[in-house]
Structures are given as C-alpha cells and as structure tokens.
C-alpha cells in the first residue's frame, strides 16, 4: 500500500465517530491524505513503520496526528507521550479528540505536550465544523517547523 500521500494520522476506536470524522474531512477534500487506525498500538506501528506498516517510508513527514484518548491496547495518552518524547516525531502537531469534558484530561494533555484539545460535541453541525476547522488549521495555516 502506498502511504506517500498520507499527511494526517487519525486514531479512533469508535467506528461511528471515525465515519463521521472521515465524512467531514471528505467534504473538505482531505480524504486521501488521511489514514485511520483503530487503536494506539496501530498508531504506533504506523508512526514507526512496524507490523502492517513496514513498507511505509519513515522519512515521509506527517502534518497532523488526531488522537482519541480512550482506545484499546495503547491509549491516546501513551501515544501522545511517545510522540512528544521522540525527537524525530515531537514536532508533529497532535490534536486530542475526546468526549470527555473532565478537567484533569485537559491538564494532562497539555502536560504531555498536546498542541490542541477538542471535545467532540453532540450536535452534528458543531462536530463537522470543529473537525473541518481543526484539520484545515493544522494542514494549511499552521506550517510545521521542519518545513521552514
């Protein structure tokens, strides 16, 4: 499989949330640039080109990582921690997507080095808009440092 077009890594265990998110991004014309993984372990495999992703070119840069927090096997926290602890990956912006409004989550995310945090709203319009705005912001307006 060719991953050379992929610029966004999207980790989400809920198929419904994933489908809705992907649809929102599709409407923004970004579908073929996004890769969806279903848990943290797969996300790490993708990032480090392991397991099913051994043929991915590790030097191909990602522009955005979107992480759900509550995922099986390896949680969003753990992925975030690893990414921000790795000198090669830490410059990739990470946006946290979660249902939780609980305060400690926000604090913990920022402590771990997350670039942004967004609570997935129930209202569909809000949800689509949030996802669109977010991806555009990080893909277009915000230039990653190693591209300068």
């Amino acid at each position: 499989m060719d991953y050379s077009e992929i610029e966004i890594l999207f980790a989400e265990d809920s198929m419904d949330d994933a489908a809705l998110t992907i649809r929102a991004l599709k409407k923004g014309g970004l579908t073929n640039k996004l890769h969806h993984v279903i848990d943290g372990a797969e996300a790490l495999d993708f990032l480090y080109c392991k397991g099913a992703y051994t043929d991915r070119n590790i030097n191909h840069p990602l522009k955005l990582i979107m992480l759900d927090l509550k995922m099986p096997k390896v949680s969003g926290w753990e992925v975030l921690e690893k990414v921000k602890g790795d000198p090669l990956l830490k410059s990739i912006p990470v946006v946290i997507l979660t249902s939780s409004k609980e305060d400690p989550d926000i604090k913990k995310c920022y402590e771990l080095g997350a670039n942004s945090y967004i609570v997935k709203p129930v209202g569909s319009d809000n949800f689509f808009q949030a996802i669109k705005a977010l991806s555009f912001y990080w893909m277009i307006s915000n230039q990653p440092p190693h591209h300068l």
Binding site: D17, S99, G123
Partner: peptide, 14 residues
C-alpha cells in the same frame, strides 16, 4: 460522560 455521549453523537451524526 464518555460512553453515553458516543452513541448519542452517532445518532445525531447519522
């Protein structure tokens, strides 16, 4: 908060 909102979001989204 997490678990109840997810199915609701799906209903709403679909």
């Amino acid at each position: 908060s997490h678990d109840l909102r997810a199915p609701l979001r799906a209903i709403n989204g679909y």
